[in-house]
Design a protein around this nucleic acid. Structure first.
Length: 471
RNA sequence: GGCCCGUUAGUCUAGCGGUUAGGACAUCGGCCUCUCACGCCGAGAGCAUGGGUUCAAGUCCCGUACGGGUCACCA
C-alpha cells in the first residue's frame, strides 16, 4: 500500500467541533501509524460564513489536542497554498480543462429561473433535477454563467468504503451540478476533489454525511484523469436524543472541554473510543492509539456522545498524574476562577486530595474553592453540626490544635482520637462539626489533610468563626 | 418524499455460523470508613421485528419498523 497521505479539511465557520476533532484525530492516527502525511486544508470558499477567528479556533483546538499537521497553513508544504480561496486559479484551470474535453459546460440559467423550476417541481411533487437546459450550448465566457459538471445519464458508480463496505450509486440520482460559481469560486465537491488530487491525497476519511457526495466526486476524479483515492466514512456523533450532536446538547467545541478542565489526552482517548475499539481496552495512551488504530476497527454505527463517560476517562487520566504534574496543570484553572493559588506545596496537597474526588479541573475549582476562599456555610450542615452540643468539641479541638507545635498527621490524629475517647464518642462525632467549620459542608477530604492544607492560622480562625456563630 | 447508511442493556462497545452473549460508563446493593470520594465485591439490564438459508443465526439473505444522513451558485 502507498504511504498514506490523508487530510482534514474543515471549513472555518466556527470553533473546532467535537465531531470534526474526531475526524481529524482518525486521520492523524492513520498518518502517524503508517509513517504517512497529515495535511490540513482550510475550505474557506463560503465567504459569507468563513472567519479568521474560526481559522484560529481550529488551529488552537488541534494544537491543544496534539494533532500536528505535516503540511498546511503555517507549516507550508509542497502542495500549497492550503487555503482554498488562495487556489482559485487551480480550480479555474481544471474547470477549463473539463470544458475543453466536453466534461463540463457553462450554464447561463439565472438563479431566478432555477428557483422557479424548483418551485414548479415542488408544486407538482416531483423531484427537482437540473433539466439540462444549457447542456449543449456553445461556450460563451462573456455571458454570466456557472460551470456544471456533466454526469453520465446511465450506469452507476461503486466504491468500497473502508468502514461501510461497497456502496453503489445509480447515476440517475445525480445531476449536472455546479462546480464553479459565477464568481469563479468552486463548490465543495469540485474544490475538494481538485485539492485532494493536487495534494496527492490517497485516502479520504471524513464524516459519513459525505457518502452521498462520493459517487459524484469519483466521477470528477475520473473526468480529471486522476486515480481515485480510498474512502472511509466515519459515523456521526449524536446527542442523547439521537439527533446529530449540536449546541443544544451542550458544549460541542473542543476548547469548551479544555476550559472545563479536561485533559487533551483524555478527550483524545474518549473521542477515539467513540466509534473505534480495540478489544475490551478503554484507556489508551497516544502511543497505543498510534500503534493500534485501524479503519477496519471503526464501527459503522453512529454513537451518542456521553459527557459522563468522558468525565470518567478524564478522571482516570488525572489519577495517573504525579502531584507535581497535577498541580502544574490545575493551577491555571484556579487562577482563572480568581482563586489565589500558586504552584506550591499547598496546591500540590490540594491536588493530592482532589485526585480521587473530582473528575475535571473544573470540578477541582468548584469543590475545593474553600481552600483558597472563605467558606460558604451550608445552612443544613450548620443546623445539624454547629450547635450548642458540638460547641465544646469545636473549642476542645481548637485548643488542641493551638497547642500543637507542628501539624504532623500523627499529632492531629492523636488529638481527634483522644477527644473522641474522652467523650465516649465515635470519631465521626468529632470530625463532622470540625469539617463543617473548616469547609462549610459535610463532604470533604479527610480532616487531617484539610487542617494541614489550611494551615494552623486559618484553621484556628475558621474554628473561632464557627464557635462564635454558635454563640 | 427519492436515494444512501445504520439497528447487541440507558450509553460506548466485543462478537465475525456452534459463547452461560464479554468489557466499560451510568444505575442499585454490600464491604472499607471521620464525611465525601477512591478501592474491592456483587446485582439488575441487551442481540428492533417478521420471514428465509442452515444440522445450527446476534453473526448470512430479504421484507417491515425505527433512527440518522443527503437531495443549493453551503461545506
Amino acid at each position: 500500500m502507498d504511504t498514506p497521505r490523508v487530510r482534514f479539511a474543515p471549513s472555518p465557520t466556527g470553533y473546532l467541533h467535537i465531531g470534526g476533532a474526531r475526524t481529524a484525530l482518525f486521520n492523524w492516527l492513520w498518518a502517524r501509524r503508517n509513517g504517512g502525511t497529515f495535511v490540513l486544508r482550510i475550505e474557506d470558499t463560503d465567504r459569507e460564513r468563513s472567519t479568521q477567528a474560526a481559522v484560529d479556533a481550529i488551529f488552537d483546538g488541534m494544537r491543544w489536542l496534539g494533532l500536528d499537521w505535516d503540511e498546511g497553513p503555517e507549516v507550508g508544504g509542497p502542495h500549497g497554498p492550503y487555503f482554498q480561496t488562495e487556489r482559485l486559479g487551480i480550480y479555474a484551470e481544471q474547470a477549463e480543462k473539463l470544458i475543453r474535453e466536453g466534461k463540463a459546460y457553462a450554464c447561463y440559467c439565472t438563479r431566478e429561473t432555477l428557483d422557479a423550476q424548483r418551485k414548479q417541481a415542488e408544486a407538482e411533487k416531483r423531484q427537482f433535477r437540473y433539466p439540462g437546459t444549457c447542456r449543449n450550448l456553445p461556450y460563451d465566457p462573456s455571458r454570466p454563467h456557472v460551470i456544471r459538471f456533466r454526469v453520465p445519464e446511465t450506469g452507476s458508480t461503486t466504491f468500497v468504503d473502508l468502514v461501510k463496505g461497497p456502496i453503489e450509486t445509480p447515476h440517475e440520482v445525480l445531476q449536472d451540478e455546479v462546480i464553479l460559481r459565477g464568481d469563479g469560486v468552486p463548490l465543495y465537491n469540485f474544490g475538494a476533489v481538485v485539492d485532494d488530487v493536487t495534494m496527492r491525497i490517497n485516502l479520504v476519511a471524513r464524516g459519513d454525511d459525505h457518502v452521498n457526495n462520493t459517487a459524484r466526486q469519483i466521477l470528477m476524479y475520473e473526468a480529471l484523469g486522476y486515480p481515485v483515492p480510498k474512502f472511509a466514512h466515519l459515523p456521526m456523533i449524536l446527542g442523547a436524543d439521537k439527533a446529530r450532536l449540536s449546541k443544544r446538547h451542550g458544549a460541542t467545541s473542543v476548547t469548551a472541554y479544555r476550559d472545563m478542565g479536561f485533559l487533551p489526552e483524555a478527550v483524545v482517548n474518549y473521542l477515539v473510543r467513540l466509534g473505534w475499539s480495540h478489544g475490551d481496552q478503554e484507556l489508551f495512551t497516544r502511543e497505543e492509539l498510534v500503534r493500534y488504530f485501524d479503519f477496519k476497527d471503526v464501527g459503522a454505527t453512529a454513537g451518542v456522545f456521553n459527557p459522563e463517560k468522558m468525565a470518567w476517562v478524564n478522571h482516570e487520566w488525572l489519577k495517573k498524574l504525579s502531584d507535581e504534574e497535577l498541580a502544574r496543570r490545575a493551577l491555571p484553572y484556579f487562577l482563572a476562577a480568581g482563586l489565589p493559588a500558586a504552584d506550591d506545596a499547598k496546591l500540590r496537597h490540594v491536588c493530592a486530595v482532589a485526585r480521587e474526588r473530582a473528575r475535571t479541573f473544573g470540578e477541582y475549582v468548584q469543590q475545593f474553592r474553600y481552600f483558597y476562599a472563605p467558606i460558604q456555610l451550608d445552612p443544613k450542615a450548620k443546623a445539624k453540626f454547629l450547635t450548642a452540643d458540638t460547641k465544646p468539641i469545636l473549642e476542645a479541638v481548637r485548643a488542641g490544635l493551638a497547642a500543637l507545635e507542628t501539624l504532623e498527621t500523627e499529632a492531629i490524629e492523636k488529638l481527634f482520637h483522644s477527644e473522641a475517647e474522652q467523650r465516649g464518642l465515635g470519631l465521626g462525632k468529632i470530625a463532622q462539626p470540625v469539617r463543617v467549620a473548616l469547609t462549610g459542608g459535610t463532604a470533604s477530604p479527610g480532616m487531617y489533610d484539610v487542617v494541614q492544607i489550611l494551615g494552623k492560622e486559618e484553621t484556628l480562625r475558621r474554628l473561632d468563626d464557627a464557635i462564635r456563630l454558635v454563640g
